[in-house]
Nucleic acid binder design. Sequence first.
DNA 1: AACCGTTGGTAATCGAGATTTTCACAAAGT
DNA 2: ACTTTGTGAAAATCTCGATTACCAACGGTT
Lengths: 236, 236
Amino acid sequence: MARTYGGVAPEQRRADRRARLLTAGLELFTSTGFRHTKITDVCARAGVSTRNFYEEFTGKEDVLRTLHDQINSLALAHVTAELDKVADADALTRISTLLDVFIATVTVDPRMPRLNYVEAVGVSPELEAQHQVWVDRWANFIAAEATRAAEHGVAPKRDYRLTAIALVGAGTGLLREWQAHDPPLPVEEIGAEFRAMMLSAIMRPEKILELPGNPGARSGVEQSSRAGARGDARRT
Amino acid sequence: MARTYGGVAPEQRRADRRARLLTAGLELFTSTGFRHTKITDVCARAGVSTRNFYEEFTGKEDVLRTLHDQINSLALAHVTAELDKVADADALTRISTLLDVFIATVTVDPRMPRLNYVEAVGVSPELEAQHQVWVDRWANFIAAEATRAAEHGVAPKRDYRLTAIALVGAGTGLLREWQAHDPPLPVEEIGAEFRAMMLSAIMRPEKILELPGNPGARSGVEQSSRAGARGDARRT
DNA sequence: AACCGTTGGTAATCGAGATTTTCACAAAGT
DNA sequence: ACTTTGTGAAAATCTCGATTACCAACGGTT
C-alpha cells in the first residue's frame, strides 16, 4: 500500500483534491449560496469525483466548517504575527495594528466576509458553536489589549468583555455591509470607522453621561427587567 | 361565495390559520432551525393542512420573510412611538430612548433576535435584500438622531452613515450573543453596553488619536489599498 | 330534507439531490 | 509481460420532503 502514483505520493494527490474542493466550495458557496449549491456542483468545479469528495468530507457542511475555520485562522495568524512585531509599542498602537491587519486580511477577498458572516450563519448547531468559539477568541483578544491599555493609563480599568463582543459585532456588521453593498463601500472608510469606534469605546469614561432630570425612556412598552438602565453595569 | 363557516367568516378563518402558521414557524425555526424544519412540521404544529398552507404562503421562505419583517416592524413601531413622546427632549435623551426601547422590545422573546440575526441570514437573495433594507432604515434612524445631536452642539458635525451601520452591527452582535449564551447574559448589561458604545461613538471627536512616530501597522501582510489608514476618512 | 358549493384533511405523486456501487483503467511491482 | 491494487468517472439507488389531487364533511340554500 501507499505507492506513489502519477509521480506524486497519494498523500499529495489527496491534499490537492482537498484543496481544490475547498476552493470550489468557497467560490460556489459565496456566489450560488450555500443552500443552493449541490455537492455535485462542487465536485464538478473542483474536477473531483463524488467518491473522492466523500473521502475527504462528510458532506457540504463539513466543507463550510473547514472554510470558516480556515478564514478565521488565517486572520488570527496574521494578527498575532503583526502584534508580535510591535510587542512593546504603546497600547493604542497595538490596538490599531490588530484592527488594521484584521481588516486588511479579510478584505483581500470579498468572499471571505461573505462566507464568514452570511453563508455560515444559522446553518447548524455545530457551526453556531464554532462561530461562538471564534467570537470568544476575538473578544478575548480585544479585551486583553484594552486591559493593557488600561494598565498603561490610557483607558479606564474596567471589564471589557461585553465591549469586546459588541466591537466584534460592529466589525462583522461593517464587513457584511461592505461585501453586500453596491456600489462597494471604500475599504479605507470601513477600516477608519472600525478603528475610531474601537478606540472611542475603549477610551470612553466609565460614565458616559449622567442623564439630566428625566432618566432615559420609560413608558408604554412592556419592559422585562430594567435595572441598571443608567449604565451602571459593573463586575466584582 | 363567501359564506360564514363554523360561526366565523372565511376571511377570519384564513387570518387565524395564517397567524397560527406564523406562530408555529417562529417556534420551529428558532428551535429546530430553519434549514431542518419541514413544511409539514409547521403545518402539524399549527393544526393546518398543507393545502391551506399553500393558500397562505408560497413556501417555507415566505413564512420566514414575513416573520423577519414582522419583528423589525414591531420594533420600529415601538421605537417611533416612544420617540414621538420625547419629541423635544435633548438629543442624547432621544438616542438613549431609541436604544432602550429597541432592546426592550426584542429581548422580550429570545426567539426574535434568534430568528432575525441567525436563522434569517444567508437563506436567499430576497431575504438578504430585505435585511439590507432594514439595516438601512435603522442606520438612517441612528444617523438622523446623531445629526440632531450635532446640531445641538453635543456631537461633532460629520457624516454618521458608517458609524450608524457599525452601531447596527454592534447591536446585532450583542443580541446574537445574548440569545446564544449559556448562561444567558444579563439584559441590563447588554443594554448598558450598547448605549455606552453608541454615545461614545457619536460624541467622539473627529480625530480620535494622532498616532505617534510609527504610523500604525505596516508590514508582511499583503494589503490592498491602504490610503486613509490614519483615520482621515472624510466626505465632501 | 335533499342539494350544491365550499372547505379541509389525507394520501399519492413527483422530483431532486445525496450516497453508494460498479466498472474500467492506469501505474507499480515482479 | 502480467498481476495486483489504488483511482476516478459514471451510473444506479435511495431517501426525503415538497406539491398536488382526491375524497369526505360541513353549512347554507331551496
